[in-house]
Nucleic acid binder design. Structure first.
Length: 423
RNA sequence: CGGGGCGUGGCGCAGCCCGGUAGCGCACCUGCUUUGGGAGCAGGGAGUCGGAGGUUCAAAUCCUCUCGCCCCGACCA
């Protein structure tokens, strides 16, 4: 079933909210995708949650392709788990802490190494059960020193986190490689220009890690990129690199948004938590671990940082909240039999991805809203075209307009989408 | 945590310096006209001026404390 504009109570704003600085934040507030509840804490409105679900969908497909199984771990975590790795103290003020009615301390999970290591240590006892690769998509909590830029740095955010458990280092590194490829594929499918860089491991730990970066002016990270070979690194990792350590070529520095991070962990968590399995000889061996994160809600904002114009959002077709918005112009247009028939063919094609703006408003407002919200395609049904059995398709990204017959509308859109999303 | 800025109908703001019945634009509601790029006219609803305390005959306005929000920095996935 398609979605009608009249079902959504959210209004777009004509004026820019004063609280927003960066473009993605401004656009999401203005277009009614999110609404702030507190600093770094946002509600996702119908448009926003749809785009979020699109990203999640792609992530799930690619995790599945990589051989990962989905789980859902608790956000509420008892402190003793965190004490076993020493992170109850080390994580500091960024960890949201609370107590239950018996004064037992808990944390709201900022990440899940402890929980998942505990889970697997209780579940996996033999090398025969390895390797294990599991992931979840879940809300994370971090009491950031300074939340900012809307979804780019929140205190509550949606993250995909995956964890691998292997019997030896070679296998752990093999999975690390699979996840690197998977991540590159995810960002490509979403329609983003991403770059993998060598990174510092920070509090998560381990001694091998790579970040996936979206180049954008508003980025909080700085990456060094070799202009000759494929080498690239976070400046935190190579603070003094004046030339490429691989080929000696010149490096340039660019600001970027971190949207993914993969870590080789080794025994960092399995040893302190005594998480081990029995090998062929019956000997107890700690798991060789890896962990792999994607900032799902941050990706939404990062996509907009990379894809917008003066009129508003320009969603990559794969993650747009709706693939097409149908604008009926003038009173009665939405009720015409030939218009309803055309909409039915779109519904057969794309179902819920069809947004019908059948509001009884002046055309200008509908055009502005459709442009602001950045649906990839607009189907414009006005008297001048419908009277001749035709419709106009506007391609948001290029501004290009096509006239097609109502009968061929679905085919034309299907072709456009295919050519816009192929790798 | 240091520095700067800001809290007044849903959004954007004025009023504060110099105390005296809370205002403008947009949005919203009703009616009529209008309908291919944010319409026009007429009418209407909506704000304990972030909160607490104080000064005063009288506080959005002056004083004290406090909470929240935004930006820069330090810090950090």
């Amino acid at each position: 079933m398609f979605v009608r504009a009249r079902q959504d109570p959210v209004l777009t704003l004509h004026e820019e909210p004063a609280e927003a600085e960066v473009v993605s934040h401004r656009l999401m507030l203005r277009a009614g995708f999110i609404k702030k509840l507190a600093g770094g804490v946002y509600s996702f409105l119908p448009m926003g949650v749809r785009a979020l679900r699109k990203i999640e969908g792609i992530v799930r497909e690619e995790m599945s392709r990589a051989g990962a199984l989905e789980v859902l771990l608790p956000a509420l975590q008892p402190s003793d788990l965190w004490e076993r790795t020493g992170r109850w103290d080390k994580y500091g003020k960024e960890l949201f802490r609370l107590s239950d009615r018996h004064d037992r301390p808990f944390a709201l999970g900022p990440t899940h190494e402890e929980v998942v290591t505990d889970l697997i240590s209780q579940t996996v006892h033999s090398y025969r059960q390895l390797p294990v690769l599991i992931y979840q998509i879940q809300t994370k909590f971090r009491d950031e020193i300074r939340p900012r830029f809307g979804l780019l740095r929140g205190r509550e955010f949606v993250m995909k986190d995956a964890y691998s458990f292997s019997a030896d280092e070679d296998d752990a590194r093999r999975i690390y490689g699979i996840m690197q490829e998977s991540y590159a594929r995810i960002f490509r499918r979403i329609g983003l220009d991403s770059r993998m860089v060598e990174a510092d491991s920070g509090l998560i730990g381990g001694n091998l890690s790579h970040e996936f970066m979206i180049l954008a002016a508003s980025g909080e990270d700085t990456v060094l990129i070799c202009e000759k070979c494929s080498w690239a690194a976070n400046v935190e990792k190579e603070p003094d690199a004046l030339a490429c350590p691989k080929c000696g070529g010149p490096v340039s520095s660019k600001t970027a948004i971190e949207v993914g991070h993969v870590f080789y962990l080794g025994h960092k968590y399995s040893v302190p938590m005594e998480a081990a399995f029995l090998d062929k000889e019956g000997k107890e061996i700690p798991f060789y671990m890896g962990c792999y994160g994607i900032g799902v809600s941050r990706l939404l904002a990062a996509a907009l940082e990379q894809s917008h114009d003066e009129q508003g959002m320009v969603w990559p077709p794969a993650i747009a909240p709706f693939r097409v918005s149908v604008l009926t112009l003038g009173p009665g247009m939405a009720d015409r039999p030939e218009v309803q028939e055309a909409i039915r063919t779109l519904e057969d094609l794309w179902g819920e991805d069809v947004y019908i703006d059948d509001r009884d408003l002046r055309p200008g407002i509908k055009f502005q809203d459709a442009d602001l919200r950045g649906f990839p395609y607009q189907v414009i049904l006005g008297e001048r075209n419908v009277a001749q059995g035709q419709a106009e398709i506007k391609i948001r990204r290029s501004g290009e307009r096509l006239i097609v017959t109502l009968d061929s509308l679905a085919i034309a859109l299907s072709d456009l989408y295919e050519s816009d999303t192929q790798d």
